[in-house]
Design a protein around this nucleic acid. Structure first.
Length: 551
DNA sequence: TCCTTGTGTCATCAT
DNA sequence: CCATGATGACACAAG
């Protein structure tokens, strides 16, 4: 319990339990109205982010130590000692970005890493990875079953239990080595406290990296189980995996993983690394040329030219299919015509396709209120969540495509004054300005639509409740009417008996009883009772009639 | 293949 | 007039 994240988890669970108890106890809906829930869920999302960051830091602390002189991350001695392959020849972790044409190309660099938008941090990468639906699936499996299983079994479970479409999807979305390795690192974090799994995370990383860097590797391994890169049908995927593993985009996506990738390449082919800036195995290069895929930015260092459109389009086609491409083409047509001429169209295109290739699953659902606020809806299916995630990242993609200096979350949620101040303080071109306005409008409208639907559902529930209440009231009135009718009948019966008793005791002067057909009793307003002939009594007050009727 | 459901988006009106 | 909210209608994806 001294572990902060465990403490946090415990607190979160308590909050959840209390929430459910409150709901079960029939706390009024107003208590959980949209505003409050949204705030609470936004806070939860932030707390989750914090938790993710802490976990990432823990992982990084395990894997690396910071070189105080250079400020670079290096593998920790303990990790190195546990490695089968020494990491002493580690290159600086930033080497990938230093050699990347992204950073070498000022336009790309400016577009991708604007002053206020640095390359995504490790924490960002981690939280984005955690938001991947497929990754979540793996983590769920690992949490539920993995704690007692060796890594091989875990990966087998993931592979076999994954629904078919999701499995296909996973080859698209998870084949990024960074994601895979992060998943495995994560699984280690999840499984490690309870299991006797002996594997060092670096061994896991090493296994994956070796698998990917050696397509002909016949040795079965966990990562091979999931991504059989040497199989013909996965060539494209494998190609993309290799692309990503060495791509500078990966370094921005998960820089530390990139470091290890480089290290492995360094160890396996040191001469090549020293002589050639690129880090591809020869067979891989031939494979790329065969597929007319010039792989990502970092490859340009070795190839010498960057066919960004071709490479990114190909990678996009492999990974995301037509829809994302169309989407990005639409972004391009919508916004790039507004871009200043100084931005070369190819650069923009490259950025757009780069976004399509790597960012569709870097969702904002950890930070965007509408998704964090959906989280507690337990009836929401995983699939619909995934669909929401996919859709939600479109504005994120657009924002990345135009390198917006403000986060989508801020664009949507900042108050008007702060928002106007923010966009006026940044020098935005027309395209960026238009996009920011669109994102804000869409985001606001999205939340409005969600609250509108919620209201609609609430009013539907209210109407149903009202119907039930009215039904109950109707039944109650019916019962009351029946009771009143019954009471009235009883009263009339009593009155009749009383009338007959009184009338029967009346005698005339001769001591004879009166004929009830000729005489009737009449009750006056002052309480006096008169005996009147029927002809006279019929013209008197209504009480007499009532008495006669009762008789 | 059709239906249902959930969601995002747009258009439009109201505030 | 502008920003924002509300809401109907539509499109799309997934089951």
């Amino acid at each position: 319990m001294d572990d902060p994240s465990a403490q946090f988890q415990h607190d979160s669970d308590l909050i959840d339990i209390l929430w459910r108890q409150d709901v079960d106890l029939g706390v009024e809906r107003e208590i959980f109205d949209g505003c409050l829930r949204q705030k609470e869920e936004t806070m939860r999302a932030r707390e989750r982010e914090l938790k993710s960051e802490r976990e990432l830091e823990r992982i990084m602390q395990r894997l690396q130590k910071l070189d105080k002189e250079t400020g670079e991350f290096l593998p920790s001695p303990s990790s190195v000692n546990s490695q089968a392959v020494p990491f002493s020849e580690t290159l600086p972790s930033r080497v990938s970005t230093q050699h990347s044409p992204v950073t070498q190309n000022p336009l790309l660099s400016a577009l991708l890493f604007s002053k206020s938008q640095k390359p995504p941090s490790q924490e960002q990468a981690f939280s984005e990875l955690l938001s991947l639906p497929d990754l979540q699936y793996y983590l769920d499996v690992l949490e539920s079953e993995g704690s007692n299983l060796p890594l091989e079994d875990i990966t087998e479970i993931c592979h076999h239990n994954l629904p078919e479409p999701q499995r296909e999807n996973s080859t698209d979305e998870l084949c990024d080595i960074g994601e895979l390795t992060q998943t495995i690192s994560d699984s280690f974090e999840v499984a490690q406290p309870l299991s006797c799994m002996p594997s060092d995370p670096l061994e896991v990383l090493e296994t994956c990296i070796q698998t990917f860097s050696d397509p002909g590797n016949p040795t079965p391994s966990p990562s091979n189980t999931i991504y059989n890169c040497s199989s013909p049908e996965n060539q494209g995927i494998f190609t993309k995996c290799q692309t990503n593993s060495s791509d500078s985009s990966l370094s921005e996506f998960c820089p530390d993983i990139n470091t290890y990738t480089i290290n492995t390449s360094t160890l396996s082919e040191p001469e090549q690394l020293n002589s050639v800036p690129g880090r591809k195995a020869p067979q891989m290069l031939s494979q790329f040329e065969e597929h007319r895929i010039l792989l990502g930015f970092d490859d340009s260092a070795s190839v010498g030219s960057v066919d960004l459109e071709m490479s990114l389009y190909a990678a996009d086609t492999v990974s995301n299919g037509q829809s994302d491409k169309d989407e990005l083409e639409s972004i391009q047509s919508d916004y790039t015509d507004l871009l200043p001429l100084s931005l070369h169209s190819e650069t923009v295109e490259a950025t757009l396709y780069e976004t399509a290739t790597y960012s569709p699953h870097q969702t904002q659902n950890e930070s965007t209120p509408e998704y964090s606020q959906r989280e507690p809806q337990s009836d929401l299916t995983t699939a619909s969540r995934a669909a929401g995630v996919r859709r939600a990242c479109r504005d994120e993609q657009r924002a990345r495509a135009l390198s917006l200096p403000i986060s989508v979350h801020d664009i949507i949620n900042l108050p008007v004054e702060a928002f106007n101040e923010a966009i006026s303080s940044c020098k935005l071109n027309h395209a960026q300005h238009a996009l920011i306005r669109d994102i804000r409008r869409r985001g606001k409208n999205k939340m409005a639509a969600q609250s509108c639907r919620k209201r609609k559902l609430d009013s539907l529930v209210d109407l149903e409740d009202e119907i039930e209440a009215l039904k109950r009231e109707k039944d109650k009135s019916k019962e009351e009417k029946e009771r009143n009718t019954r009471d009235l009948r009883v009263m009339k019966e009593k009155l009749k008996n009383l009338y007959n008793e009184v009338f029967g005791q009346l005698r005339d002067e001769q001591g004879n009883s009166y004929n009830p057909k000729e005489y009737k009793l009449q009750h006056s307003a002052d309480g006096t009772v008169y005996l009147l002939p029927c002809s006279t009594a019929n013209n008197k007050n209504t009480l007499t009639e009532d008495l006669a009727a009762a008789v």
